[in-house]
Amino acid sequence: MSAVATYTLRLGDDALVAAQRLAGWISRAPELEEDLALANIALDLLGQARSLLTYAGSFDGRSEDDLAYLRDEREFCNVQFVELPNGDFGMTIARMLFFSAYQYLLYDRLSGSADPTLAAVAARAVKEVAYHRDHAVQWTLRLGDGTDESHVRMQAALEACWPYTAELFESDALTREVAAAGVGVDPGTFSPQWASFVDGILKEATLTVPVLPARVTGGRRGIHTEHMGYLLAEMQYLRRSYPEDTEW
């Protein structure tokens, strides 16, 4: 695969797996209104995944469905961060805060890509992600600066997610290549902005920025956590069980 195709696939897999995880809240959120908000955000992410996977597949004649439903775990190149279980509501909000802050900075830069398709997808997505980030910020402030119980659980959620955030900003030969070509963005270049945004929100929410070592990574190379297999089984089961029914 070309560098652009692989780079696009990474972004698409991040969005797809994040959407699948978030969709697990549907009918289980604490309130009806929050259920709708989480479902809206999951659908936004799914829309981004569809555009990105369609584009990634166009390089070698695969469809978005081929890529979403017919690849095995080792062929997915999303970061491990997005495949972690939802946990409690605090954990979901902590992940949304970290991930949307990352995606916002990424898409904001990618909207200036020399690749017109990536630029267009990013320009649309950055507006959606601004809302996701706002939703996560609103809840982080309320849970962090809420009751003793919500504060303790929000802090625990931050610490559970934190070791996985380092992978979001990993540079490798591929990100450097697409960045040098003006097509992609090397995520290492905006990690200071991410850290300062997260720092500001956590301080305002009376929470503490975790000081924890990064986890061993590998999602970009197809090395995933033990949770990924179960997620894919649920997501792909129907399509793989009825391979002859290609129209849904």
């Binding site: 309130e31 009806l32 209104e33 709708l36 908000a37 809206n40 939703h135 609103q138």
Partner: peptide, 15 residues
């Protein structure tokens, strides 16, 4: 709709 405060009520209304 239900919301814990005005800011979130506005956001819930949007959704």
């Amino acid at each position: 709709l239900h919301a814990p405060d005005a800011t979130l009520a506005l956001r819930n209304a949007r959704d």
